[in-house]
C-alpha cells in the first residue's frame, strides 16, 4: 500500500480524535491497532521512523502506542 494512502488514512483518524476531550493520542493508536492489519501498521511506523512527512502531530504522538507487527 502506498505511504500516501496510509498517511491520509491516519490523518483522517487523527482529525476525528483531535477535537475529543481526552485520550486523543491513545484513541488514535487504539483505532489503528484495532482496524489496521500488521503490514499496514508496519508501513505507517516505517514512515514515522523516516521522519513522518505529512503526518499530523497527533499521529506522531500516537505512534509510540501503535503496536508493531509481530514477527510471524
Amino acid at each position: 500500500m502506498t505511504e500516501n494512502k496510509l498517511v491520509r488514512m491516519a490523518n483522517q483518524i487523527a482529525t476525528f480524535f483531535e477535537i475529543q476531550p481526552s485520550d486523543r493520542a491513545a484513541n488514535v493508536a487504539a483505532h489503528i491497532n484495532d482496524n489496521w492489519s500488521p503490514p499496514m501498521r508496519a508501513g505507517l511506523l516505517d514512515h514515522v521512523a523516516q521522519g513522518g512527512d505529512g503526518l499530523s502531530p497527533l499521529v506522531l504522538e500516537a505512534a509510540a502506542m501503535i503496536r508493531p507487527a509481530r514477527a510471524s
Binding site: 500500500m1 502506498t2 494512502k5 503490514p39 499496514m40
Partner: peptide, 18 residues
Amino acid sequence: PEPGLRIPNMLDAAVGGT
C-alpha cells in the same frame, strides 16, 4: 489475533504485490 485487510486494503495490497 491481528486484524486482516479490508476490501480497499486488499486491492491496494494487490497492486503492491503482496
